[in-house]
Simulated assay, not measured.
Amino acid sequence: MKHTVSKRAVASLVQQFPQLPETVVRQAVAEAVRAYQGRPIREFIPLFAERRARRALAADSH
């Protein structure tokens, strides 16, 4: 599941942040997913991870 989630999040965020290299987007998503590892409610990790990565990328691109 994690790989598919990350793949979707990366694809979405690459479109939202075309000015950033894909490697930067991948790293932001990986860090966001790691931040939620071990949490009891796993169903929301994809959503939270993508949101967290989006905020990090937006902050870095300004």
Rank of each mutant, 00 (worst) to 15 (best):
L20Y: 08
V33D: 01
V29F: 01
L47V: 15
R52N: 14
Q37N: 12
I41S: 10
A58F: 10
H3E: 13
E50P: 12
R8W: 03
V33M: 04
V14P: 05
R55I: 05
L57I: 10
I45H: 06
A56I: 01
G38E: 09
G38L: 05
F44Y: 08
A35H: 11
I45E: 06
A56R: 06
K2T: 15
R34F: 10
V5M: 11
A59H: 08
V25K: 00
T23R: 13
A11W: 00
I45Q: 03
H62C: 07
G38V: 14
H62G: 14
S6L: 01
K2I: 15
T23H: 13
A35G: 13
Q37L: 13
E22C: 00
G38W: 09
R55S: 15
Q37A: 15
D60K: 11
D60A: 11
L20G: 10
R34H: 04
R34I: 08
V5P: 04
A49H: 02
Q19N: 10
M1K: 03
L13T: 01
M1T: 15
V29D: 00
A53T: 00
R34T: 09
P40F: 14
V24T: 11
A56N: 14
A59P: 02
V25S: 01
P46A: 07
R8E: 06
S12T: 10
M1P: 11
Q15V: 03
A32E: 01
A56M: 05
F48N: 07
A32D: 04
E50N: 03
R52Q: 09
V14N: 03
A56E: 13
E43S: 14
A59S: 07
F48E: 06
V33L: 13
K7N: 02
R55G: 10
P18L: 08
R42S: 14
H62D: 13
R34Q: 08
L20Q: 14
H3C: 04
M1C: 07
L47R: 15
M1L: 10
A35F: 15
A53C: 07
K7W: 00
G38I: 12
L57M: 13
A30D: 10
P46G: 06
A28W: 01
S61W: 07
Q27W: 08
F17R: 03
A35S: 15
S6H: 02
P40D: 14
P21E: 14
Q27A: 10
R51M: 11
V25R: 01
P21C: 04
L57F: 04
I45N: 05
